[in-house]
Computed example of a mutant assay.
Amino acid sequence: MKIQLKRLNEDYHFELRNERGHVTYIDNKTETGGHDLAPSPMEYVLMGVAGCSAIDVISILKKQRQDITSYSAEVEGAREKIGGASPFKEITVTVFLEGDIDPEKAKRAAQLSFDKYCSVSKTLEPTAKIIYKTVLNKKEV
């Protein structure tokens, strides 16, 4: 896996391209010298958690022939100052599912994602506590 980064302005706006040609952008917030033209690197970390777990949960439920009519998630990261850095100390993920889905299967799919399969969460796990909950048809399971 390889990413190429190219600076786009005199400050912190960058273009990133993966080996398959997909392009995305990163910038810094205005209060820290950027122009807020794109998400920050730490926001992309949270997006990675959201996307990785979504792929896992949907894949698991599809294999179990569950009818998913809607999937969304919210990811919130709490950071702590350590020296000059501010890494995540805790990340909370809420998975929202709708459809004809067995509640135990929904709960188990999220558990498997965060405890076993999600490479992004597993990468962050040594330094950040990952908390997750599953909401199925507007009710926490």
Rank of each mutant, 00 (worst) to 15 (best):
I68L: 14
K63Y: 06
V49L: 07
P126W: 07
R79V: 09
S121N: 11
C52E: 05
C52F: 13
P126M: 08
L97M: 13
L112R: 02
L124Y: 08
V95W: 05
C118Q: 10
T92R: 15
Q111D: 11
K105Y: 04
D100H: 03
K129P: 05
M47V: 10
I68V: 14
F114K: 04
K133A: 13
L46Q: 09
T94V: 15
I68F: 11
K81L: 12
F88I: 01
A50I: 08
V75C: 01
I91E: 02
P87E: 06
K62I: 08
D56T: 09
A78T: 13
G51A: 06
G51V: 00
L97N: 02
F88P: 00
E98M: 01
V95S: 06
D102V: 03
Y71P: 10
E90C: 08
E125P: 02
R79A: 10
T127D: 09
M42G: 04
Y132L: 02
K89T: 12
Y71H: 06
K62Y: 09
G48R: 13
G84T: 09
I60Y: 01
Q64H: 12
V95Q: 09
E98I: 02
T94N: 07
I91S: 06
A78L: 12
E76D: 06
L124I: 00
I131N: 15
V45N: 05
G99Y: 04
A128Q: 06
T92P: 06
F114Q: 08
Y44L: 08
G77T: 11
G84Q: 09
E76H: 05
D67I: 08
R108Q: 11
T134V: 15
E43Q: 12
P103E: 13
A50K: 12
Y117T: 00
S119G: 15
Q64W: 14
T134W: 03
L112Q: 10
E104L: 10
S86F: 14
I58T: 15
F88Q: 03
G48H: 13
D67R: 14
K107E: 12
G77M: 15
L97W: 14
K63W: 13
S113Y: 05
R65L: 07
T69F: 12
A106K: 04
K63H: 07
V120Y: 14
G51E: 05
E104P: 00
Y117E: 00
M42T: 13
K129M: 03
I91C: 05
A109W: 00
L61I: 01
Q64T: 09
I58R: 04
V120M: 12
D100Q: 08
E98H: 12
D100G: 04
S86Q: 13
C118N: 04
S53H: 10
